[in-house]
């Protein structure tokens, strides 16, 4: 299953990239599982670890950890928003 992943603001800087295409390993099928999978990559990626204040969106709508991720989805991770 392939998905597009986007990173914004302080998360983008910490992981050193704005976007990537990723083939998800077997068993990674939710926003929370994808987040844990990415957090395990090592240096820089611990910004996605549990306990950190991270928000996510799937196909440009805010998503919770248990939201299912499907083939072709656009998943975004970012810090709490600070507009206005």
């Amino acid at each position: 299953m392939n998905v597009k992943i986007l990173y914004f603001a302080s998360l983008r800087e910490a992981v050193g990239q704005a976007s990537e295409e990723l083939a998800l390993p077997e068993g990674v099928a939710s926003v929370g599982a994808l987040r844990a999978h990415l957090a395990a990559r090592g240096a820089g990626w611990d910004v996605l670890a549990g306990g950190r204040n991270v928000r996510a969106a799937v196909n440009q709508r805010m998503a919770t950890a248990d939201e299912v991720v499907q083939e072709g989805d656009e998943v975004a991770f970012f810090p709490p928003v600070t507009g206005g």
């Binding site: 969106a57 600070t82 206005g84």
Partner: peptide, 14 residues
Amino acid sequence: IMDYLKTRAPFWKR
């Protein structure tokens, strides 16, 4: 609208 924008619209200030 402002209260929701502050917490739900994806903007970030540096």
